[in-house]
Nucleic acid binder design. Structure first.
Length: 829
RNA sequence: GCGAGGAUGGCGGAACUGGCAGACGCGCUAGACUUAGGAUCUAGUGCCCUUACGGUGUGCGGGUUCGACUCCCGCUCCUCGCACCA
């Protein structure tokens, strides 16, 4: 151990030793309690950024801490390696996507190692390697077998920039989640996963997720968008057709004065065929097609509509009502048609006023004189039923059920639940993804590739041209395949899977990364799953976290896992900013993990990123703050290095009663620090306060050395303090602690294999405590008293203080309050 | 509009169950050591009044309490998510 702290030297040294000893490996062991710590695996974009460094630092502290606590910890890492950037890079730099990706992975893995992250690299998974995507395909076939994967023609979101379709979740404000290009709808044949079949379970089981942030659960709940109501059939006048609508307000059915169809509704064309309104309606529909999704769905957009010339019949009262086509009705929700009740829905009200359609009041607030004529806005609250035949006089909320039952008896409609959630569109017209294992046969139709024929390999000798056409569509060799069923020549599906499919099950593969028989072994996932602590960015609140939950549930149904939810606890870590803005090259505020490691070492970087803010909050990067952490580590280094002589190996027995007052204080600080650090890490995830407590301990030890008489250092106490300091700092700054542990402490075994120290309640009671003495709630003095003083002793001690007495003079004490370990308050008058 | 979270020194943040507001760190000020200091150490650092004594202070206005950053009522502002969802 040299005199100066040299992070570069010791970090490289220990990283090598750790790798050789590989004690981060984990084996399933039913006799040990397991803990699965997982950080969201990265896309191998090329280099780690500060966001990565933050999430890995959080996970690594937890993993190291829990190992020392005696848990059997699984802490794996891998690569979400399929995706469009690899294709773009291939075109730009003339490198095959596989090569580009593998190079990036190699580089980023080196960076991760240089951060001192304690991953079990034996379990590394890479989603673009055949030994992984083979199992992604296997799971696709499983879902297909279960009827959860299907192909259909539908209006889908198309990103012209990425030249592929997108799932609904991947359209943010009408634009592509990746490149921001506005999406357009196209009518295409595509593969879907039936996530809607799990809508209720995805919603209900949110309640099981006590360890998830409330906001993430709410976001998922909103996204699923469950509404309960009724589906009602309205027969079209002079026609065999029936228009179905969905409503959450069957109690307003008698107030329907018109219907509105979405412009894309399949009946529109037929309803206007050959009539006067045909041209106007078709022009309107055409115009709506041209308006972008963003404009169409904005709440501010003016509500527009045209009359179709057709009428339908309200089944409840036989009234004829006009059918309109309107821009504010969406084909993607409910049935694409609505009943309009202007009296009780504000949108309908505005629309009715604009187009002079009738308003009919059917629910009245109790005791009011509201009428159809005098209302100035829709009345949306519950009330008393009017103008509703035999339901008149009833409570409107009761009528929701009553009228639904009536509809069911009469066969006019039924109770129904509608969701905002759509099925997950998983096919992509891209090359760099897992091929969908399907063959189309002229005779047999759509035929799944047999499990034993997997993987359907991506051809790697492809040329990516600027055309953006998937090379798979041009590859005769890839497409030509015998039909698995009849042997005739068929053609392979050329679409690949959404990369979110690959990331929907990777946490299961970590449990049995080398299985050649199954995607994962039941025995392994039974031991390791669920992930006890998942850590990642809030940007995945819906996308990845919803898909992974869906997969887990489907695989549960298939009997492949025994867990209903994949992630017990979720920590959504905040972003890393600098100077109030997101770090980026273009803004010139970029700080990279590499330069921090280069200038200060990984330990300093880890410490700062954990110290600067609690993990779930956004973090403002501050170069001077980094230097502060560097200074702290050097201060620890000097403390240990300069006082090696006082450190004696082996057990250090300490008898409290033999300690001096100064020693008792130090002993007390040591143990209250251990208590605080343990709780801050495990219970609160407040690494920032854990680190500050360790800093206080270091200050206290310096102060002890400063105060103690020359040559009178209590070696047992000091040794024990130094050892436990190194142990509790080790999860945060693993390299420097390992070096100090091996050199100053002289231990053979790694500091990371030590047991986490226990705090001793006896130590916490060793020293006197300082309490506050207040008069009328104002602090007038402080006093040191033994911990076990009772209330009377506290009060007596307080009243004896001269400063207190000066405030009591000439006054009567009317109340005395004594809170043990805290304060005394004397109320006087 | 709906929902969630937040507002504490010059800055990042702490105060966990109602009990010393500002721990810890950064920055700043003064001093020590030094050829030098951007190393290290010591002291100080919410605001106000000349020191002390004291007063005052956690977005704003009320309330409960011996005691409120913390609980209750009413506002303001900020961030995020959702938003024609029938």
């Amino acid at each position: 151990m040299s005199k100066d702290y040299n992070p570069k030297e010791i970090e490289a040294k220990w990283q090598k030793i750790w790798e050789d000893k590989s004690f981060n490996r984990s084996e399933a062991d039913p006799d040990k309690e397991k803990y699965y710590v997982l950080e969201m695996f990265p896309y191998p974009s090329g280099k780690l950024h500060m966001g990565h460094m933050r999430v890995y630092s959080i996970g690594d502290v937890l993993a190291r801490f829990l190992r020392m606590k005696g848990y059997n910890v699984l802490h794996p890492m891998g690569w979400d390696a399929f995706g469009l950037p690899a294709e773009n890079a291939a075109i730009q730099h003339q490198v095959p996507p596989a090569q580009w990706t593998d190079n990036n992975i190699a580089f980023m893995k080196k960076q991760q190692v240089s951060l001192g992250l304690s991953y079990d690299w034996e379990r590394e998974v890479t989603t673009c390697h055949p030994d992984y995507y083979r199992w992604t395909q296997w799971l696709f076939l499983k879902l297909y077998e279960m009827g959860l994967a299907y192909k259909k023609k539908a209006d889908v979101n198309w990103c012209s920039q990425c030249e592929t379709v997108l799932a609904n979740e991947q359209v943010i404000d009408g634009a592509c989640w990746r490149c921001g290009t506005g999406v357009v709808t196209q009518d295409l044949e595509q593969w879907f996963f039936k996530i809607t079949q799990y809508a209720d379970r995805l919603l209900e089981d949110l309640e099981l997720l006590e360890g998830w942030p409330e906001r993430v659960k709410i976001m998922q709940k909103n996204w699923i968008g469950r509404s309960e109501g009724a589906e009602v059939d309205f027969p079209v006048k002079d026609s065999e057709k029936v228009i179905s609508i969905f409503t959450t307000r069957p109690d307003t059915l008698y107030g329907v004065t018109y219907m509105v169809l979405a412009p894309e509704h399949p009946y529109v064309k037929e309803l206007v065929a050959g009539n006067q309104q045909e041209k106007e309606v078709l022009d309107f529909v055409e115009e709506m097609r041209r308006v972008s999704e963003i404009e169409r769905t904005s709440a501010e957009t003016e509500k527009l509509g045209v009359f179709t010339g057709a009428y339908c019949i309200n089944p409840l009262n036989g009234e004829e009502i006009p059918i309109m086509v309107g821009n504010y009705v969406l084909m993607g929700y409910g049935t694409g048609a609505i009943m309009a009740v202007p009296a009780h829905d504000q949108r309908d009200f505005l629309f009715a006023k604009k187009y002079n359609l009738p308003v009919k009041l059917v629910i009245k607030p109790e005791g009011s004189d509201l009428t159809s004529e005098n209302m100035t806005e829709a009345y949306e609250d519950p009330g008393i039923m009017v103008n509703s035949a035999h339901f008149d006089g009833m409570d409107s909320q009761e009528c929701i059920g009553e009228i639904t039952r009536y509809l069911e008896i009469k066969n006019w409609g039924k109770h129904d639940i509608s969701y905002r959630l759509r099925d997950w569109l998983v096919s992509r017209q891209r090359y760099w993804g897992a091929p969908i294992p399907i063959v189309y046969c002229g005779k047999c139709g759509t035929v799944p590739v047999p499990y034993e024929d997997l993987p359907v390999k991506l051809p790697e000798d492809v040329e990516l041209k600027d055309s953006r056409q998937s090379p798979l569509e041009e590859s005769e060799e890839f497409q030509k395949a015998p039909c698995p069923r009849c042997g005739q020549e068929g053609r392979r599906e050329t679409d690949t899977m959404d990369t979110f499919v690959c990331s929907s099950w990777y946490f299961l593969r970590y449990a049995s990364p080398h299985s050649e028989v199954f995607p994962f072994e039941r025995e392994d996932v039974d031991y390791w799953m669920p992930v006890d602590q998942y850590i990642g960015g809030i940007e995945h609140a819906i996308l990845h976290l919803m898909y992974a939950r869906f997969f887990t549930k489907a695989l549960y149904d298939a009997g492949l896992t025994g867990v209903k939810e994949p992630f017990s606890r979720l920590l959504a870590q905040g972003m890393v900013y600098k100077d109030g803005a997101k770090m980026s090259k273009s803004k010139g505020n970029l700080v990279t993990p590499d330069e921090i490691i280069e200038n200060f070492g990984a330990d300093t970087g880890r410490l700062f990123i954990l110290f600067a803010a609690p993990p779930e909050k956004d973090l403002d990067w501050n170069d001077q703050g980094v230097e502060g952490c560097y200074r702290f580590l050097r201060r620890v280094w000097r403390l240990v290095n300069d006082n090696k002589d006082h450190v004696i190996p082996g057990e250090n027995d300490i008898k409290v009663q033999d300690l001096s007052t100064l020693e008792k204080e130090t002993y007390h600080t040591l143990h209250s620090t251990i208590k605080k650090v343990s709780e801050d890490i495990q219970k609160r995830f407040n690494f920032n306060t854990a680190i500050s407590a360790i800093m206080e301990l270091v200050n206290a030890l310096y102060s002890y050395l400063d105060k103690v008489e020359e040559g009178k250092v209590n070696k047992a106490l000091f040794s024990r303090s130094i050892k436990e300091l190194i142990i509790i700092l080790a999860p945060f700054a693993p390299h420097i602690c390992e070096e100090m542990w091996s050199d100053a402490v002289g231990a053979e075994e790694s500091v990371h294999l030590q047991d986490w120290p226990h705090y001793e309640p006896e130590a916490l009671k060793a020293a006197d405590i300082e309490i506050v003495v207040q008069v009328n709630g104002k602090v007038r003095d402080k006093i040191k008293i033994p911990v076990d003083y009772n209330q009377e002793e506290m009060l007596n001690a307080a009243k004896d203080l001269p400063k207190v007495q000066s405030h009591l003079e000439g006054k009567n004490i009317i109340k005395e309050i004594a809170v043990p370990n805290k304060l005394v308050n004397l109320v006087v008058k």
